[in-house]
Amino acid sequence: MDNMNNKEYQKYAERKIPKPTYFKNILYAFVVGGAICVFGQIIRNMLFKFGLDENSVTIATSIILVFVGSFLTGIGIYDKIGKIGGAGAAIPITGFANSIVSPAMEYKREGFIFGVAARMFSIAGPVLVYGVGSSVIVGILYLIFTKGR
């Protein structure tokens, strides 16, 4: 090992790792992600039939999808969907629900304040921070540019 420096070893070790099954992973992500979106579209179409307006339909659809994602996480199915679908299960809003529900469940033994509630956003927290933060910046920039005209 004396004839190898850190950089050389890291490169060498990287080559020894089996490559992911790219094609299979991409195919499954496509199918699982697409299917969840189709499920969302079915909900949308049903809600439109109830006579809701565009805005309410979008909000209600995300609430229903979050419920489904939470429920499937609770009964221990969403982690299996995630294992197969990868990003196809993580990126839809059901995956966002999964990232909130799974740590909440996991930390029940540590109590309902420091366990469930404190850990709930351990994965999804950054998403809200960057999402909400950037949306405020977008709003302010919009204000500046429209006022400037």
């Binding site: 909000i59 995300s62 419920f67 939470s70 009964i75 909440a104 469940m105 469930v116």
Partner: peptide, 21 residues
């Protein structure tokens, strides 16, 4: 986006009470 976020908080809390990992 309040609908989705509030739903995630509520359902997450309920799921934590009802289910075990």
């Amino acid at each position: 986006t309040a609908g989705g976020i509030a739903a995630a908080i509520l359902f997450g809390y309920i799921a934590a009470i009802v289910f075990d990992p």
